[in-house]
Design a protein around this nucleic acid. Structure first.
Lengths: 115, 115
DNA sequence: CCGCTAGTACGAGTTGCATCGTACTACGGT
DNA sequence: ACCGTAGTACGATGCAACTCGTACTAGCGG
């Protein structure tokens, strides 16, 4: 059922799990990848709560790889994606994650990459 | 280098990452498996801080599968394993995890399995 | 209308992980 | 000495995930 992943015509929101559908194991799995961890951290630290398109995060990978990681983040419920014209604008679902998994995002904020 | 994984002759401790070597991404990866999540939760809830052998956790899987999961938990730093005669006694490394990733174990305690 | 741009979709290659069977080792008891 | 027990080690299988190239689509500007 998660086929072409079409945005809601009214809000532009792409399909995502509701707050009470969030699964800790899925969120942890999404965050267990260092690249995605750095993406989420960048949103938390540098986006100032504003929506940022995928291209805002600087990363030396082909576009298809980027699409993949943002999709994993959205389907696990970590980020929300809203289609606006050409771009998909992203935000971390801080309220939902804080409600369901308090403290988790603080760990992401404090994370330091290995290298 | 992580070969037969021999226990320290003095303490019985099996090799594990030091507190400052713990990596958030590895810990999250270890905890992103529902089976391991339920294992860690059982230790936190029902072990009363005591050491428990692998066989203490009731699970309908062959022994080799069990060994695998406890190894993942140890190598990521979530549990400590101490060889005592025949058994390997396990504890969750609460102090280390609370120091490095405060709040994380609370999420595990509060977790509810999907089914 | 043409081209640029942001991004998706699809498919392939590769790697890693979960699962499990089998064989094995080491300790403890009788 | 024998056997049961607790667990590891190894190897195979199957599946899911990461990576990426290529082709494609939808807006927007001129």
């Amino acid at each position: 059922m998660p086929e072409p992943a079409v945005a809601d015509p009214a809000t532009g929101l792409l399909p995502e799990p509701a707050r009470d559908e969030l699964r800790l194991e899925h969120v942890l799995s999404a965050l267990s990848d260092p690249l995605r961890l750095s993406i989420v951290q960048a949103y938390l630290r540098d986006a100032g709560g504003e929506e940022r398109a995928c291209g805002w995060f600087k990363i030396d990978r082909p576009k298809s790889t980027r699409t993949h990681h943002w999709k994993v983040l959205r389907e696990s419920g970590v980020v929300r994606q809203r289609q606006v014209g050409l771009e998909r604008r992203n935000t971390v679902r801080e309220a939902d994650l804080d409600a369901r998994f308090p403290g988790l995002l603080d760990l992401v904020r404090a994370w330091r990459p290995a290298d």
